[in-house]
Design a protein around this nucleic acid. Structure first.
Length: 296
DNA sequence: CTGTTTTGATTTGTTACCTCA
DNA sequence: GCTGAGGTAACAAATCAAAAC
């Protein structure tokens, strides 16, 4: 996002350049002092073009107040060509960081209340109260609109950008945990499926052996019509419960599978022989265990 | 003390919308 | 009015690095 960034080479003063409309609402919370797209969409704000362009030069300490104070729909001026000024990421009301911490390690840049010797700034740690409140809000909504962000930042005595980052990280963390959990579930499912297939394989091997034994030693009076009957006659092969992989509708070794949407057999030759169900489903698809795992 | 995890912050890429020529 | 280019903002994903464990 290079076009959004202002890099102030000669750090010292924060140049919070803004063209304010002077009549904004919560748009001060928007990134880079610009009007929030989401907000403008939601509340149908008029064009963000400034009615009365103003140039704001803010010192580091006052930048926050300039941005979060709802001073209006400050319009980012990233498109302005300022000689010698290259854009770096400057958040809402955070021109101060781009300047006052430009030479600092980036992970330390957010700690505005730390020592400013420029070498070893401590990383901000939220207090328990701050974390608890953030968690509460996250439980309500995992995203914040600009107004909420500014209000929450005010309440927490943080910058809106910090609140925004916290929510971003929290969403990412949640997504990671969910993904991990799902991976574990899928893994367990596959493990059980593998065990079931192994067991089924053993059973079929036994059955095959019995069939071979019958073939080479046929009964002269009443040849069995099926292996099951033969097995039953021999008293060896009881009817097994349906294997797990069938319960899970996994594709069997014979490449047969059930389409979960239409309950029809799918596989080589199966579709043609399966009983037609014309109105059940217009489109049939082969079942893929990896796309129809517990994740679905 | 070291390795691992957590977490605040940054960078990069993507997407959607707006303005303007 | 339509269209493409450029700008802006929001977000996800990847990553870094300090702090906690």
């Amino acid at each position: 996002m290079a076009q959004e960034d202002v890099h102030l080479d000669d750090a010292g003063l924060a140049l919070g350049l803004s063209l304010g409309s002077g009549s904004g609402g919560a748009s001060g919370a928007a990134r880079h002092g610009g009007i929030s797209r989401r907000l403008s969409r939601e509340v149908r704000l008029p064009s963000p073009h400034p009615l009365e362009p103003s140039l704001t030069l803010s010192l580091p300490d006052e930048a926050t107040a300039t941005g979060s104070g709802g001073g209006g729909a400050a319009h980012s001026v990233s498109s302005l060509s300022v000689a010698g000024v290259k854009r770096e990421r400057v958040d809402d009301a955070e021109g101060e960081r781009a300047s006052s911490t430009a030479a600092l390690p980036r992970a330390c840049a957010g700690a505005e209340d730390d020592d400013d010797d420029g070498s070893t700034r401590k990383k901000l740690r939220l207090t328990k109260e701050q974390s608890a409140l953030l968690e509460d809000r996250f439980k309500e909504h995992s995203t914040l609109n600009p107004k909420q962000k500014v209000a929450l930042a005010k309440q927490l005595k943080l910058r809106p950008r910090q609140v925004e980052v916290w929510f971003q990280n929290r969403r990412a963390s949640r997504a990671r945990r969910t993904k991990l959990k799902q991976t574990e579930v899928d893994c367990e499912l596959l493990k059980r499926c593998c065990e079931s297939l192994t067991e089924e394989n053993r059973r079929l091997q036994r059955e095959l052996q019995e069939l071979r034994a019958l073939k080479f030693a046929p009964h002269p009076q009443a040849p069995p019509s099926s292996a099951t009957q033969a097995g039953a006659a021999a008293g060896v092969v009881p009817a097994p419960p349906p294997p797990l992989y069938m319960q899970m509708q996994m594709p069997a070794a014979a490449t047969l599978s059930l389409c979960p949407s239409c309950d029809r057999l799918a596989g080589p030759g199966a579709a043609a022989k399966a009983e037609p169900r014309p109105k059940a489903a217009a489109t049939h698809h082969f079942f893929n265990p990896f796309t129809h795992s517990a994740a679905c």
